[in-house]
Design a protein around this nucleic acid. Structure first.
Lengths: 213, 213
DNA sequence: CTCCAAACTGGTAGTTACTGTCAATAGGCA
DNA sequence: TGCCTATTGACAGTAACTACCAGTTTGGAG
């Protein structure tokens, strides 16, 4: 879904189990999945740049026009961020006295569990594409800014400081950047290590290691 | 310059004062400046996306082909990073016992002085474009990765840890992300505050504030 | 069940960034 | 002066998008 107004804001996981959607909705979901699947198949063999939108559309049996209705840009295929709202909810549920690192770590447990359960392999593939393709990496980092702003809002509310506060912005930026980096590290190691443990290590290193002699 | 093989790797500042270049070289420099100037003029009135490469080329009196010989992509007009080598040298000159934050802060003083002296206004405008235009922001963050890798290498060498070390990567990532964010903050305030002071505040907040109750 | 409005779709015709090629030209140098 | 090479412009092409319009499908009201 990422940055799209087209279909629905936070779908996928929920929607599959949740409601008996109308035929229209189900068809849309199916199309969406078909396009994404076709794309990833091509990517795996031809690479990202070597795959054209027309090919993807043909494989998925839709017109190129339709492709762009589902994914505003080719890059959107790779980036997905259905879990931000969940993370936000978890974050707000943490007590304000907790340290930032502690809150973030605990708030991430649930969303991470969900991601890993639903689309672990997809995530690994996506991170590989991201590592190999500068354009995608660039795009995904823009996306990260949205997450960062969310974190910034939450931190602002619970600390009483404005979102324009330099220190607060620095902290939110650092936490998000480090988290992203950690997921990459995790993917580079084929997802064999425990992501939460890695996150804890990385955030701790930043929180305590930057001023150590 | 950034990521271009075409003209010369680290020119501009040096070249102006340094040598009595041949006519050919001088012409190249002039063309380069003409293109950049034309572009920024258009950007200021029509915005980035609203300006086509053809317009820029026409204003600068060159063919579109030539434009791409000087700037491999339109985005390269906005991004410039002539100061990384200088920063790297300064960093390597810092003693290994120093904390990361301390080394980075001290190493940045000289390069920052140079940037602010040479192209303060350009930098402010560039940051504004970057704030307004997602594509440019994306691109500049790719560029940041290069800087991060440089920092990572330096930290790796002076600590003896490998560049693949999670903690080291987290620290390098955090420092660079926070620095970038701080420059944005500085630009949002029209460059009226002292950039080094801001950097010190931001990095300190991250180094000490993430685990505070 | 019927019919209508809205949602969805495909096709067509752009626009723009960017690439490759090739011949002409202009600068540097013997 | 005259040769060699870097620089250039014109041209043709590709691929990612955008705008528009006409035809079909769906969900719901009567």
């Amino acid at each position: 879904m990422t940055s799209a107004p087209p279909p629905n804001p936070a779908a996928d996981i929920e929607e599959i189990l949740a409601a008996p959607l109308g035929l229209r909705e189900r068809k849309k979901l199916r199309t969406r999945r078909a396009i994404r699947a076709a794309a990833f198949n091509r990517f795996a063999t031809q690479g990202y740049e070597g795959t054209t939108v027309d090919q993807i559309a043909a494989d998925a049996d839709v017109s190129p026009s339709t492709f762009f209705r589902y994914f505003p840009t080719k890059e959107d295929l790779v980036i997905s961020d259905d879990y931000d709202p969940l993370l936000e909810a978890e974050l707000r549920a943490r007590p304000a006295e907790e340290s930032i690192v502690e809150s973030v770590l605990k708030a991430m447990i649930q969303p991470l569990r969900a991601v890993l359960a639903d689309e672990r392999d997809d995530l690994l593939l996506r991170m590989r594409l991201l590592r190999e393709n500068p354009a995608i990496r660039a795009r995904s980092q823009v996306d990260m800014i949205r997450s960062r702003d969310m974190l910034l809002r939450v931190l602002s509310e619970r600390s009483g400081r404005p979102t324009s506060d330099l220190e607060l912005r620095a902290q939110a930026t650092a936490v998000l950047a480090v988290s992203g980096e950690t997921v990459e590290y995790w993917a580079e190691h084929n997802g064999e290590e425990n992501l939460i443990t890695l996150l804890e290590r990385a955030l701790t290193a930043v929180a305590t290691g930057l001023t150590a002699h």
